[in-house]
Design a protein around this nucleic acid. Structure first.
Lengths: 138, 138
DNA sequence: CTTACTACTTTGATGGTCAAGATACTTGAT
DNA sequence: ATCAAGTATCTTGACCATCAAAGTAGTAAG
């Protein structure tokens, strides 16, 4: 089997894992995805967050509305531009983000089960190169 | 950055790439996903295909209805069980599947841009081990 | 043959998505 | 300053994907 098919298989398995894992949190995939993006970037305006997630701002508006009503994210006024909001995680939202990150780490540890420390480093190096060679998202 | 975050980043980039790529084909993601699953398994009954894709048979019924009306898949009577259908790709459906597979290969080649043959083999070995260590989908 | 089970389809409801239009603000040119 | 053009967000209306539950037709086991 070629690397291409291996990647597809890994992608498939990670997707299934992600879906099951997120379902346990009680959030939908788009909602968790949103929390993760905000968690990584800390503070974002709607436009940038929508671009990162590959959705329109209209879609993001309703997502953020729901996350806000659940007390997971916060719209703060943007002092530099009164048209836009700075979106951040609340403490509760940050907990979801951290739990999700921990679950990722656990999943990774499972995959690296029989790897020596040296092999992990080598794998990581390859992954880094591969990921960086990858077409950038516009 | 740890391997966990690298994988998440790769996953994210592959998702974006996949979405853009599939959009160009004129099919929705679920429709392409369905064609790929049938392409890999050649002949499947609805129940098994639904399980592979992680959707209910009710959802799959409408997906297959649409793919059938587009002439991309075929419901053939199952001689062993008159309750079920064997789902297969038509020639047109197979072309979509093959084009998609080729696009995956192209994407992979891009990522492996600066890898020597020896490095590709090593990376492939690690990927294989990692993928196989991964929790199975049930 | 009858009961329990199974494969598939249908139906009704919900959620995510987009395109297009509306609103409020900013920017740049006059 | 003022106005026009551009921008960030929100709203609306429509569509698709999805599920749970109910319905249909076929199988299996006694």
């Amino acid at each position: 089997m070629g690397i291409s098919n291996l990647l597809v298989e890994l992608f498939e398995k990670m997707s299934v894992w992600e879906a099951e894992n997120v379902k346990e949190s009680g959030l939908s995939l788009p909602h968790m995805h949103t929390l993760v993006m905000i968690g990584i970037h800390r503070r974002l305006i709607m436009k940038d967050l929508a671009a990162l997630m590959g959705v329109t701002t209209g879609t993001l508006t309703v997502t953020v509305d729901k996350l806000e009503s659940k007390g997971l994210v916060c719209r703060e006024p943007n002092p530099d531009d009164r048209r836009s909001w700075m979106i951040t995680l609340t403490d509760d939202g940050h907990r979801f983000y951290q739990d999700h990150t921990k679950a990722h780490a656990k999943m990774t540890a499972h995959g690296l089960n029989d790897f020596t420390a040296k092999e992990q480093e080598a794998f990581k190096g390859y992954l880094l190169r591969f990921t960086q060679n990858f077409p950038e998202q516009e």
